[in-house]
Write a protein that binds this DNA or RNA. Structure first.
Lengths: 234, 234
DNA sequence: ATAGTTAGTGATCAAGCGATAAACAATTCA
DNA sequence: TGAATTGTTTATCGCTTGATCACTAACTAT
């Protein structure tokens, strides 16, 4: 591209990017690379994919582990905190709309081959950042969802969710999450229309939640239907 | 234990097991080992855990890959096919009981650190056996569940499930599945009572399914409530 | 007992790994 | 222009990996 004089040695490509751009490029492509190969992938293969030589990586990152940490940081933190909490709590809109929009936006971020694979790999490594992320989902998302569901059902919404309620929110959330795993990790055929999946899942969850945990306010049913939470009879 | 005369060399332990027992022991412990370390774990570490030397592995398995294949086989195939299909289709019992018992049994098999980790690792490798397993779950479990749900809701139960119905079964199933992942992979606190989680999830799913996909037969509601499957309004 | 078979071991190879040091090339500034 | 600086490569080190080979010791059959 931009080469003044032919160097004596035949260096196929010598870009000489600004350090900051180079670093960002390294982290971005390393994310893809480790998503594909797992974190056992070699630094030589990674460098080949980057179009540079392997030792150059060590000018930008002290060790492979540090590069990986940076990959984690960008994957986990970059897409987060985009006003989702406020969206979930905006009671001027119907709860169903809020949840639908939230999950549309949330899945638009995490339903990529890259994100899901890095997430699963880091989960298998038992990393702290993964535990932290699970905690964030629980406290910032699921707890709010339950609060809003309670409010909708005419239940007191200011107390902390019960363990059972939280668990149901997890089951619902994980069900949606696994749609992405099936599609991008297992590469299994899924319902092509993601929005409909979310919509249906929401319908099932909201209807079921109210019926199982809801009060008598607007249903006329007993608070906890006997058939609904019956003990296992076998 | 059983040593006639002290050998000249100090061989700490020389068990000399029958080949068949040895092989089984190797596969079993290799499963645990790879579940812990991932399939990148070294053969030397594995051998150390087995209490033998590394070359001995190659007397029983031509290569590390072959050993791993055998691990897959035992993990995936061994616990399968225990009459679950018949259980699901036994219409002499209430559908809720059947599903509850099925998921109690199913999760008793797969909710182990070992099973879940091997499953996730193999999924990330994109192995055929993993795709096969996903197909089995879809055809042998979820399709039957939907058929029974339809029967329960007074819908025709002999036609193949729609893509939407199948997707909802996946969301439900995955939600339960991920309870195990949260507990054994992320080691995150979960609702201690697994049975209650299953029970509640079932209640939500059954109530929601009937409301979203159900007919008018026993509910007196419109077949597809307008509010239930409304298009997203944003 | 003794010969034959085979489970198990120690030593080692070639290849690949992460990481380092020194040489070189491109840019910047005097 | 020439010196200093910094990005990039070549060459290489020490270590680990999967795999192999020759050998030893335990079991089996006669």
């Amino acid at each position: 591209m931009k080469r003044k004089a032919l160097p004596k040695r035949i260096h196929a490509k010598q870009k000489r990017l600004s350090p900051d751009d180079r670093r960002k490029e390294f982290v971005a492509k390393a994310t893809e690379f480790f998503a594909d190969e797992g974190f056992g992938g070699g630094t030589r293969d990674l460098a080949r994919r980057l179009g540079v030589t392997q030792p150059l990586l060590y000018r930008y990152f002290p060790s492979k582990g540090d590069l990986i940490k940076e990959v984690y940081r960008t994957v986990y933190l970059e897409p987060l905190d985009t006003g989702w909490e406020k969206l979930l709590c905006d009671r001027s809109r119907p709860i169903r709309d809020r949840l639908q929009e939230f999950y549309r936006a949330y899945t638009a971020v995490i339903f990529t081959r890259k994100w899901l694979r890095i997430y699963l790999y880091s989960g298998l490594k038992g990393l702290d950042i993964n535990r932290w992320y699970v905690g964030v989902v629980r406290d910032k998302i699921l707890t709010r969802i339950i609060r809003e569901c309670r409010h909708e059902a005419g239940l007191p919404a200011h107390t902390r969710p019960t363990a059972s309620e939280l668990e149901m929110a997890w089951v619902f959330h994980s069900g949606i999450f696994y749609y992405g795993v099936r599609k991008y990790i297992y590469e299994s055929p899924v319902l092509e229309d993601k929005q409909q999946m979310i919509s249906d899942a929401l319908d099932v969850f909201l209807a079921g939640f109210e019926r199982v945990f809801g009060s008598t306010v607007d249903t006329g049913r007993a608070p906890v239907p006997a058939a609904g939470r019956a003990a296992l009879s076998l």
